[in-house]
């Protein structure tokens, strides 16, 4: 009969013992942050499952039901060519949130790589990357966005690239700063002494610690991208119709008459933007508190 040897040192796994487990635990104690996370989750689910909730398509027009305030048939009313605004709101959410996600991801990818290279290798590499960061950070944000839209057109990929290019330096700086601090720590010296390769040191030992801060920044970054997209749509440069985005939908409110008489055009998207941005900010703050409780905001 085989006897399975049991390690005498085996301890019952308590998730609180792991780094991320700790973070999750502290996060869950923060009620505001949890509520925001839940709200965001609901909004996200609504955006994904909108075809199942609503019988209308985002482009279906009903000419005889234009400009109708919210009623039983159209929960959020219709716009000036008869499209159902409830459906459009959540399809727009897909685009706005999707853009925010992609921009933040690209931004973090570039930022983390550049930042780690700069922090790790120092010297000329560091100097060059820092100068590069300054170049991108010195551009007057909105005006450069507008300029790039003029040159390369107004499509979604251009928008994503522009926003990512203008904001990766911030991530790079955070990463670089963290790496500089961690690099001096003793255990890194130990790694070097042990002969572990550069790449391994970067990926396995430094990055996980930096990642936490990057994630906090990313959450806050999502909020900022949503706001930027709104501003760009106002200036006529964001995603162009007929694709709806939250910024696009709010654009109708440029007219004082619309603000006065047709509140259902702009209040729902406005609220959607406002709510998501606040929630992202709260979640980001909550994460930051959970990761580093000494850094009380």
């Amino acid at each position: 009969m085989e006897i399975k040897a049991r390690s005498p040192l085996r301890v019952k796994r308590d998730f609180r013992q792991s780094y991320w487990g700790n973070v999750a635990y502290r996060f869950s104690r923060n009620r505001l942050a949890v509520a925001s996370f839940a709200t965001l989750f609901i909004i996200l689910m609504a955006c994904i499952f909108v075809p199942m909730i609503s019988p209308y398509h985002m482009e279906s027009i009903a000419m005889n039901e234009r400009d109708v305030p919210p009623n039983a048939k159209h929960w959020l009313g219709t716009d000036k060519i008869g499209r159902d605004l409830f459906t459009r709101l959540f399809y727009a959410g897909r685009i706005s949130l999707g853009i925010a996600l992609v921009v933040t991801t690209v931004q973090c990818l570039i930022g983390v790589s550049m930042g780690s290279l700069a922090g790790f290798y120092g010297g000329i590499v560091d100097a060059f990357i820092m100068r590069l960061c300054e170049v991108f950070l010195s551009f007057p944000f909105l005006i450069v966005c507008v300029t790039i839209a003029m040159v390369f057109g107004n499509s979604i990929p251009v928008l994503i690239l522009t926003l990512a290019l203008l904001s990766w330096p911030t991530v790079a700086r955070i990463v670089r700063g963290q790496i500089l601090t961690l690099r001096e720590m003793e255990y890194m010296e130990a790694c070097e002494a042990l002969g572990i390769s550069d790449v391994r040191r970067i990926f396995k030992h430094l990055l996980p610690n930096v990642l936490a801060y990057v994630i906090v920044y990313a959450t806050l970054g999502m909020a900022s991208v949503i706001l930027t997209e709104t501003s760009l749509s106002f200036l006529g440069l964001g995603v162009s119709p007929p694709t709806p985005t939250w910024g696009n939908l709010i654009q109708d409110a440029r007219d004082l008459l619309v603000i006065k008489n047709k509140w259902w055009y702009w209040v729902p998207p406005g609220l959607a933007i406002f709510l998501s941005v606040i929630c992202f900010n709260l979640v980001g703050d909550g994460l930051r508190d959970a990761i580093d409780p000494k850094m009380k905001r």
Partner: peptide, 13 residues
């Protein structure tokens, strides 16, 4: 084009 509403109205009619 959707920049103005009238082409959409006309084409859907």
């Amino acid at each position: 084009y959707e920049d103005s509403p009238w082409p959409v109205t006309l084409s859907s009619m």
